[in-house]
Design a protein around this nucleic acid. Structure first.
Lengths: 102, 102
DNA sequence: TCCATAAATCGAAATATCTCGATATATTGT
DNA sequence: ACAATATATCGAGATATTTCGATTTATGGA
């Protein structure tokens, strides 16, 4: 739990928006054929919704991953990103601790 | 509750450290004579502990104030800063909401 | 009024972040 | 092996943040 890296990753409205979108798979187009069982969303779908360049979104997802907010799973040529709820909880607990604990 | 501004203010280790120090008045030298009743801490004390320049700390306290994390109270030539626990709670609730609420 | 002190603001240099297009890498299908 | 597609990485320009010293403003005391 690197709080520095996590806050830095959250310090951008598009990255926060992506984390919100990822709460619900139905914010994106249907899964690609053969990947219906996967929870995650590919970079191209996220890019389309965020309306930023492919490289920017790839970079953003890398930052969110380093911060622990998402997991990446490669399947063939696609990387499927999904929220890591456990780490998100852990982050919230850590911030709460830092801001409130005596 | 401007979450953008709040996260931005927290996105700096010294500012987070200051918020932690302000949890406990005894992290700083005793109050100036005649101000023993005040909860807050003057800029000079914070600066001394943070070991950054006066202008930097004044700027930091301004950012923390704009974000709502601290209140400023002017008494004579001093500005006394203290945590705004209500707003800190509100911020935590808002982040929790943004990160978790469906 | 003049001086000293505290804090805020200004201007600037160094560093970091944002964002892009171009390129590289990995994988799949022909 | 080749072409097509998805993603990652690279290099760079624009913008923002960090941090400083110098200056300004506000206050209190001699």
């Amino acid at each position: 739990m690197d709080i520095e890296r996590s806050i830095s990753a959250l310090n951008n409205p598009v990255r926060r928006q992506i984390l919100e979108w990822l709460k619900d798979r139905s914010n994106f187009p249907p899964a690609l054929p053969g990947h219906e069982d996967l929870e995650g969303v590919c970079v191209a779908y996220i890019q389309e919704k965020a309306k930023l360049s492919q490289s920017t979104i790839s970079n953003y997802m890398g930052l969110l991953k380093q911060a622990g907010f998402v997991n990446a799973e490669r399947h063939g040529q696609w990387t499927f990103y999904r929220r890591d709820e456990k780490n998100i909880q852990a982050f919230l607990a850590a911030v709460q601790d830092e801001l409130l604990k005596s």
